[in-house]
């Protein structure tokens, strides 16, 4: 790192930092705005006065949301869903990706096509619902993660990563008499932390953000995840929903509470990424590839 930086590089660095400060601000400000709204008085929010700082500071919105048993229960469900779903999804997807990344595997191409086909064609909601009902998953918690546990997109990313690992590693292990499974768990996986962290994140976020599955399959209040709760909160306050429903219009959720709910529903999942970032460091392969 002692190489002298030239002027053009300095200029590049400066512009690059400036660029990211601007980009960062544009993505951060809406959240600051949401935070400000959630701490503002409803009157100030309604008239659109709240920008980056709360007006008429209050914390009642958070008290309200955090006391709501429906919110708390769905938060619990979402955390459980994200953990169980991610664990299962990551495991299943990884053990599927590994064989498909081995060029010598006979029928590899056909297996891959079989997987990719399902990314582009689907039987649609009606037969799927019928299936879920026949295997007893409708209105059951597992319906939220079992069908999504095998994700072809994620599988392809892992497979792609495995293919990029140097061949030498595996060969030396094989010469030592290790089985394929042994190679996967003791050599390949430890070198794959960046991609595993990425896919774990993808799974966790997908499970966290999914409301459609629960909207279709879950009517039992006990199993509803947070995003469905949030969706219901926002939809039931939308003008389209209230158009012909005076009784609902009399009980709409104040906008400040909506803002607080959005934030509270997003915060837990936001904390996952910084935690996983440490696996995204360069040089995981250093030392493993010798000669």
């Amino acid at each position: 790192m002692t190489v002298k930086t030239s002027f053009s590089e300095k200029l590049f660095n400066f512009c690059n930092y400036l660029f990211f400060i601007l980009v960062g601000l544009t993505t951060l400000l809406p959240f600051v705005n949401l935070i400000a709204k959630s701490f503002s008085s409803e009157a100030a929010v309604i008239s659109g006065k709240v920008n980056l700082l709360p007006i008429g500071f209050q914390t009642g919105t958070y008290m309200y949301v955090l006391k709501d048993s429906m919110f708390l229960n769905s938060l619990k469900n979402s955390i459980l869903l994200a953990i169980v779903g991610t664990a299962l999804g990551l495991f299943l997807t990884t053990i599927t990706a590994y064989p498909l990344s081995r060029v010598q595997l006979r029928g590899r191409k056909w297996f891959l096509l079989m997987f990719i086909f399902t990314m582009l064609f689907s039987g649609g909601l009606i037969p799927t619902y019928l299936l879920m009902q026949n295997i007893g998953l409708v209105n059951q918690f597992p319906v939220l993660f079992l069908p999504a546990a095998i994700n072809v997109f994620n599988m392809l990313i892992i497979k792609n990563y495995f293919e990029g690992l140097p061949d030498g590693l595996e060969e030396s292990a094989k010469l030592d008499g290790a089985s394929n499974i042994r190679v996967l768990f003791s050599i390949v996986l430890p070198l794959s932390l960046p991609v595993l962290a990425t896919i774990a994140l993808f799974f966790a976020v997908a499970f966290w953000n999914d409301y459609f599955t629960s909207m279709i399959y879950i009517t039992n209040q006990d199993f509803k995840p947070l995003q469905l709760y949030l969706k219901e909160l926002l939809v039931s306050s939308s003008s389209e929903f209230l158009k012909d429903n005076v009784d609902a219009a009399l009980n709409t959720t104040p906008q400040s509470i909506q803002a607080a709910s959005i934030l509270l529903a997003t915060l837990p999942i936001l904390m996952v990424y910084p935690f996983l970032q440490k696996y995204f460091v360069k040089g995981v392969l250093v030392g493993s590839v010798k000669g």
Binding site: M215, I216, T219
Partner: peptide, 21 residues
């Protein structure tokens, strides 16, 4: 009591009725 979803309620109703819930 069971509630229809806030969105896609017609869809869900059809599915429930067609599947004899």
């Amino acid at each position: 009591y069971e509630m229809l979803p806030a969105e896609s309620s017609d869809e869900k109703l059809n599915l429930m009725v067609a599947n004899k819930q």
